[in-house]
């Protein structure tokens, strides 16, 4: 357990380091890394408007495996969610079966569009897949009055975080296009998201010592 966790964590760290210092995309996710299997608040950033026009609509494509998506209400923008079927259905939390999920979130008709030299964030909440090491690509497109600014490019070959050349390949991809899709690298969480799911071992992993009285309480 320790070794895969190390590989994942170190690789994610290296990618984020590389990304931060050399190659983030135009549009980007504020969370360049996120714990797998977490319900996570995400924010997609539009880094600038189109050259001569303001961005007046933003679309974010939700990657496969991401469920329970709730767009955040954004002041001055109308928010819509387009759905897609999940076939076959997948098991959700609490034994529910998920048969449809958000495919695309659309923010549109703003009170004021995004000018060229300004950035703006668009938030949503989502359950991230339990796939540590996966690179989630959030394809986005900015719509202006008479033009589009897409950030939809994906690597031609899937990026494998266990690949020893993962970092080089990721950087090569980022350098090969001016329109890369924003991404988030999933890493294995040290512990479950919610405190009531933590075990004594989890507590120990984060340096917490369980006191006798707590042990007693736990026994009760």
């Amino acid at each position: 357990m320790l070794k895969p966790a190390f590989i994942t964590t170190a690789a994610v760290g290296a990618v984020v380091l590389m990304s931060a210092t050399s190659a983030s995309a135009h549009n980007y996710m504020t969370a360049l890394r996120a714990p797998a299997n977490y319900m996570h608040d995400m924010e997609a950033r539009v880094a600038h408007g189109c050259l001569a026009e303001d961005v007046v609509e933003v679309r974010v494509k939700i990657p496969d495996g991401v469920f329970r998506v709730t767009p955040m209400n954004t002041r001055d923008w109308e928010v819509e969610a387009e759905m897609r079927n999940v076939d076959p259905p997948v098991a959700g939390d609490g034994g529910r079966s998920i048969t449809s999920t958000v495919d695309t979130i659309i923010w549109k008709n703003p009170a004021k569009g995004i000018p060229f030299n300004r950035l703006e964030g668009f938030k949503f909440r989502a359950k991230l897949p339990n796939e540590p090491g996966r690179v989630l690509f959030w394809q986005m497109v900015n719509i202006c009055a008479d033009s589009r600014d897409p950030y939809t490019d994906l690597p031609e070959q899937a990026l494998d975080i266990k690949d020893s050349e993962f970092g080089e390949k990721f950087e090569a991809f980022m350098g090969s296009t001016a329109h890369p899709a924003p991404y988030t690298v999933l890493y294995e969480a040290e512990m479950p998201q919610y405190p009531w799911e933590w075990s004594a071992e989890h507590m120990k992993n984060i340096g917490m010592t369980v006191t006798p009285s707590e042990q007693t309480a736990e026994a009760k």
Binding site: V16, A20, H26, R33, L119
Partner: peptide, 20 residues
């Protein structure tokens, strides 16, 4: 591992929006 991850996160927070 945690050191590199934290360092990466720190850099990402410091300069999250480079672009072409």
């Amino acid at each position: 591992a945690l050191f590199f991850a934290s360092l990466g996160l720190a850099f990402s927070l410091a300069s999250p929006a480079w672009s072409h």
